[in-house]
């Protein structure tokens, strides 16, 4: 593939990527780094299945060009588990039946982990608003919310 050669740092590993400028971060993760856990759906910022964490913040990897992520620390769903031990949110998804077809799951995991690491003091209402960022056509969201709350318990909203 033609284009410039640059490094992407993903889940602690460096990958040399040669890609044209128009290649998105999402496509580069899948095609050039072989990390196919990140899914691409709409490719226009709407569905959120492509969500990854860049320098601590969850972003749509279809709306960033790969070269823009040069020098950044990128985290994808492949980096969540520690060896055989699942991330608490992954385990909570299994326990709460928060996935059916699973197409949206990597995006939801990175969205929730990224948003709650960035804003650990987020309220339950704010968490619900965060979950509205991504689309799931199977579960109806209730189980996803349940899993998120199980992995990241929120203090009860203070009485007014």
């Amino acid at each position: 593939m033609s284009g410039q050669t640059f490094q992407l740092h993903v889940n602690g590993t460096s990958y040399a990527v040669t890609a044209p400028d128009r290649k998105t971060l999402g496509d580069a993760l899948r095609e050039d780094c072989g990390l196919t856990g990140t899914h691409l759906g709409c490719e226009q910022g709407v569905c959120g299945t492509c969500t990854v964490i860049v320098d601590g913040r969850p972003v749509r990897s279809c709306l960033m060009f790969a070269r823009q992520a040069e020098g950044a620390q990128i985290r994808t769903v492949e980096g969540l588990a520690q060896g055989e031990r699942l991330h608490p949110l992954q385990q909570a998804f299994i326990d709460a039946h928060a996935l059916q077809c699973g197409f949206c799951t990597p995006g939801f995991l990175m969205l929730i982990v990224g948003a709650l690491e960035q804003d650990p003091d987020m309220t339950e209402d704010e968490l619900a608003e965060v979950l509205s960022s991504n689309l799931c056509r199977c579960t109806g969201y209730a189980a996803i919310a349940k899993a998120a709350l199980a992995a990241y318990p929120r203090p009860a909203t203070p009485a007014e």
Binding site: G45, G48, T51, R57, P58, V59, R60, L63, M64, L111, G114, A115, E129, V130, S132, S133, N134
Partner: peptide
């Protein structure tokens, strides 16, 4: 700011 798009769009 909370009314604009969604969290991962607001980060960029």
């Amino acid at each position: 700011s909370h009314e604009i798009a969604h969290y991962p769009i607001r980060t960029r």
